[in-house]
Write a protein that binds this DNA or RNA. Structure first.
Length: 987
DNA sequence: AACCGCTCT
DNA sequence: TTGGGAGAGCGGTTA
């Protein structure tokens, strides 16, 4: 018989919605009215892709019914552990139903059954007619059991992974089984945590595969359980019924009373007006094109090619500076071109264009006048753009003449985008492989840099004047990396910076700022992935140096091109949200500062650490032995699971021991501290934890991170991760070096000056967050205390406990300190009670007392929340935003979290703003004064310097002054500055 | 990869 | 009764 002429697609709506929701988890799409449309968008994307690529003749969308199903009757616990549906999904589902309806696609739903039963039943019936080829569109692996010659699974494409069709062969391979019927046996044995189907304990995918290969089915396995041995046998015997039940639950029912109405499923015209209205409401502009809702007349026509003319001639209007006198000039220059003589030189043109912001100005000279600036493709009815589908011209620049021409040309631009290709991720260890440049959409140039150091230097030197030209803005993604690379080649990049990663960080602080993702989100463009060039991580991964240069041209050119386009996208967004000044005056200058800090690095006393390591090692062994003796057995103390069993099952230390949300015993510091009185093992475990932590995380790890090139440790500061505006530090994290305990202090002592002539100087803000809180709230008591140098915790204690300042006991002060911190974080009475280990009632009373004494603080906190509710975000003194999308949520936990953020984010973030400004000014001051001292670290409210002994006094004075005045406020800022032979004594 | 636990401000 | 101050990164275990 001929192949069936009809193609039926059956969509598992909820599964697709879930997948879409989580795929966009980090970069949700939000409409201007605050509706999260990620799930809707993802679902539509997947559906439209199928319609376009697969051209089904028939289609249906199945939903689960909200009522309980027959499975719940079989097994009451079915899906019992499932978390309540995320709010965004609940909100999205009705929209999706409406969209499906508007597309005139039938919705398949039936009380008492789940989508898979409905899909299964219809699939089988469609096949029985012999006229259909059926595809079940779902990411759910359970559907494997339905596959046959006529029925397939269609796994939708998501986030870079291509769509996949699975037939009998693929499904059997996926499970490692011989026959499709065995899918339910596999599911029965393994179970499903998501649906709370138990399976048989101790059997995972691997074991199940072996057992099914050997026994064929669950029933047969149980009948032959005596052939098994050990724990496995026990489990199979004991949980036989559970296994059979699980298999039943996993079995999709094919007798759902739904009619198979082929005509109803036939794909027809959309209800265009309704669909248009929906797309408008959801702000899905691109979708309208893909749905064919825009009339063709509305589509911009592809702009005609501009004939090669002025632009191209501009390029070589002035004689290129260096090139030898070869006649064979690059890029199609025709000697004797008429316009040459009249064209102004690049330098004059730049002056004329100096007020223009972007390099894409219509009259800017063009290096290649091949493509116009406008988007080339129309966007309608097309999948996401890729390097193959978008017209571009990325060129290799690999001769002295070409390099000189390019450099000369770039020197006439007001802004250039560049990107460096290197041999490694770590900029301190990496070497340059090439540089890519772009100045307008659709074009880029790739300059390979030779492996030989001297030759490489010569190539870099050609571009050095351009890169160091203060009049040319430098655009890039994560520019700090490129700056660090270039510093190693003697290039000090100058001029304004525009870092697309950080621009996006300001626009959407909590999302991802990865270039590929931003390209997909903002440009609807899917870049070539780095893996396509160098392969996956691990064995066989190439370095950029080993990749064919033709491939790099495309990849690197694309990076520069895309980055430039992102800059053009983000600049107006920054302006719109009043973030441009923060970006241009704070974040961009800070990039240079951080690059210098990182490059400088900090010296570590390895001998001291080695000694410490040996001491810790003997101590760990000692404590470990003592714990084993107290426990009566040896076990892995590092395993919370094993430790919990020893403490609570074996030693029965606490009858109602707390469990974590995953069902294990909680063995955290707080719990063990409580147990200290009961059993000495608790103290020992805490000791053990401290020792092993210090040893593994710091003492043994830090020396390995010393750069062989410099002999120092170079952390990496991340300027685009913390949602509040703080910096973070990785590889290693130098913002969490111990200081609290005596042993921890030994580690801090190992951070030492670079040489005899230097000392460590540490300068920190005193109570920066509380001072900001006082200033923002205008609270008189607090402001006066700070301005008159009264200890703030004592002041708070005096007020809350109604005693004179002189009568405050250390216990009262301690409590007040906890309260003060709690206030900044938006504390609850429960939280305070917990921390102070006092009854909740008492804590509530203290808070009430506090608010009575500090009414302005209370008002300020309420106002912060109110403001966030109105705006949808909280903001810092410099206008840095943090979006609080849950501030109006009906979910209490989510909403309260957002409210705490509304209070904390402006305070923590403004402190970060202040320190950043101080850093920029100090950096500037040190350069102006040509100091030998170096700023080397920043830790939220602290700056650390490698200070030259001769400069100590002036450095101290200048740093102090700058820090105190970085952002003037109604409350004066105070600093503490210390100097010493190591970081511990300096702090 | 997720979780736990611990380090810092 | 649950869930209940903020922001980070890293090492270890378990699955």
């Amino acid at each position: 018989m001929a192949k069936p002429q009809n193609k039926l697609f059956l969509l598992d709506a909820l599964a697709l919605i879930y997948r879409a929701h989580f795929a966009f988890n980090k970069n949700p799409r939000i409409t201007s009215r605050g509706l999260n449309t990620s799930a809707i968008f993802g679902f539509m994307n997947a559906m439209l892709e199928v319609l376009q690529k697969e051209k089904p003749t028939h289609i249906g969308v199945a939903f689960d019914h909200s009522k309980k199903t027959f499975r719940h009757e079989q097994f009451p616990m079915y899906k019992a552990t499932r978390q309540s549906q995320p709010e965004d999904i609940s909100v999205a589902t009705p929209y999706i139903k409406q969209i499906v309806e508007a597309m005139n696609i039938p919705i398949l739903i039936m009380e008492g059954f789940e989508a898979d039963d409905i899909i299964g039943t219809i699939a089988k019936r469609a096949c029985a007619t012999g006229e259909f080829e059926v595809y079940m569109m779902t990411p759910d692996k359970d559907y494997g059991q339905l596959v046959d010659e006529c029925i397939h699974i269609y796994k939708p494409a998501f986030m870079g992974k291509a769509a996949e069709k699975q037939g009998v062969k693929e499904v059997c391979e996926r499970w490692g089984i011989e026959r499709i019927e065995q899918v339910t046996d596999m599911l029965g044995l393994i179970g499903d945590a998501v649906d709370n189907i138990p399976g048989i304990p101790g059997i995972g995918e691997k074991t199940a595969q072996k057992l099914i290969t050997e026994f064929g089915s669950v029933e047969n396995l149980i009948a032959n359980a005596d052939q098994l041995k050990g724990k496995l046998k026990e489990n199979v015997v004991q949980y036989a019924d559970q296994g059979l039940l699980s298999k039943q639950l996993a079995t999709i029912h094919l007798d759902v009373p739904v009619p198979f109405d082929a005509e109803a499923l036939r794909l027809t015209e959309y209800d265009k007006p309704r669909l248009t209205a929906l797309m408008d409401e959801l702000e899905f502009r691109q979708m309208k094109g893909r749905l064919g809702l825009d009339s063709p007349a509305d589509q911009p026509l592809p702009p005609a090619f501009k004939a090669a003319g002025n632009g191209q001639m501009d390029l070589f209007a002035a004689p290129a500076p260096a090139p030898s006198g070869t006649a064979d000039l690059p890029f199609g220059f025709e000697p004797g071109d008429a316009a040459v003589a009249d064209t102004p030189t690049p330098k004059t043109r730049k002056k004329a264009a100096a007020t223009e912001a972007t390099p894409t100005d219509a009259d800017a000279p063009a290096f290649l006048d091949v493509y116009p600036d406008a988007e080339i493709e129309t966007g309608a009815s097309k999948p996401r753009k890729t390097i193959q589908s978008v017209r571009h011209d990325y060129r290799l620049v690999d001769t002295p003449e070409l390099r000189a021409s390019l450099a000369y040309f770039l020197s006439s631009q007001t802004a250039i985008c560049f990107d460096s290709e290197t041999t490694a991720i770590d900029p301190v260890e990496a070497d340059l492989v090439g540089l890519a440049f772009a100045y307008r959409t659709g074009e880029a140039f790739y300059v390979p840099v030779p492996a030989d150091r001297a030759e490489a230097q010569a190539v870099v030197d050609v571009f050095k004047p351009v890169l160091q030209d203060p009049a040319i803005t430098k655009i890039g993604q994560n520019l700090k990396y490129d700056l660090l690379m270039l510093k190693k080649y003697g290039v000090e990049v100058q001029g304004k910076l525009f870092d697309t990663m950080i621009a996006h960080y300001l626009i959407e602080p909590e999302q991802r700022h990865n270039m590929d993702i931003m390209a997909m989100t903002y440009l609807d463009y899917h870049p070539v992935e780095i893996e396509a060039l160098i392969g996956k991580k691990g064995k066989g991964q190439l370095t950029m140096r080993e990749v064919d240069v033709e491939k790099i041209v495309e990849y690197a050119g694309e990076d520069a091109d895309i980055t430039l386009q992102l800059k053009q996208t983000f600049e107006p967004l920054l302006e719109k949200d009043n973030l441009f000044k923060l970006f241009d005056q704070v974040e961009m200058p800070l990039v240079q500062v951080l690059a210098d800090l990182e490059l400088e690095g900090i010296r570590i006393d390895t001998n001291a650490l080695a000694e410490l390591s040996a001491t810790l090692d003997t101590d760990v062994k000692q404590v470990q032995q003592e714990i084993y003796e107290l426990a009566g057995e040896s076990f892995n103390i590092g395993s919370p699971k094993q430790l919990g069993e020893v403490l609570f099952d074996k030693l029965k230390l606490d009858k109602n021991a707390k469990k974590t949300r995953t069902g294990q015993y909680a063995t955290g510091e707080e719990i063990l501290s409580k147990l200290e009185a009961e059993h000495e093992i608790a103290r020992k475990i805490l000791d053990y934890r401290e020792l092993i932590k210090l040893k593994n995380t710091y003492v043994d790890a830090l020396p390995l991170l010393i750069s062989p090139r410099t002999g120092r440790i170079h952390t990496s500061f991340n300027q685009a991760v913390a949602a509040t505006g703080r910096l973070s530090s990785t590889n290693p994290n130098l913002q969490n070096i111990p200081i609290r305990t005596p042993r921890g202090q030994e580690i801090r002592k190992a951070f030492v000056p670079r040489s005899e002539e230097f000392l460590i100087m540490s300068a920190d803000y005193s109570q920066i967050e509380l001072r900001i809180m006082a200033a923002f709230s205008g609270d008189e008591t607090m402001t006066n205390a700070f301005n008159n140098n009264i200890d703030i915790h004592t002041q708070t204690a005096s007020k809350v406990f109604h005693v004179g300042l002189g009568e405050v006991t250390s216990e009262m002060r301690r409590k007040a300190k906890t309260i003060n911190f709690g206030i900044i974080y938006g504390i609850s009475s429960f939280g305070l009670a917990q921390r102070l280990k006092i009854p909740r009632k008492e804590a509530a009373q203290i808070i009430e007392e506090y608010f009575a004494e500090f009414p302005a603080v209370k008002a300020y906190m309420e106002q912060s929340v109110e403001k966030a509710r109105g705006f949808g975000y909280a903001e810092t003194i410099l206008g840095r935003r943090r979006y609080l999308r849950d501030i109006n949520s009906r979910n209490v936990t989510d909403r309260m979290f957002a409210e705490r953020n509304a209070i904390n984010a402006p305070i923590q973030g403004s402190a970060a703003d202040m320190l950043k400004i101080a850093m920029i000014q100090i950096h500037d001051m040190m350069r102006r004064e040509r100091m030998q001292s170096k700023m080397i670290l920043t830790v939220h409210d602290e700056l650390v310097f490698d200070a030259h002994r001769d400069e100590l006094d002036i450095l101290r004075e200048r740093v102090d002054h700058i820090m105190k005045n970085a952002i003037p406020m109604a409350v004066k800022m105070d600093t503490g500055i210390g100097v010493g032979e190591n970081w511990l004594v300096a702090h």
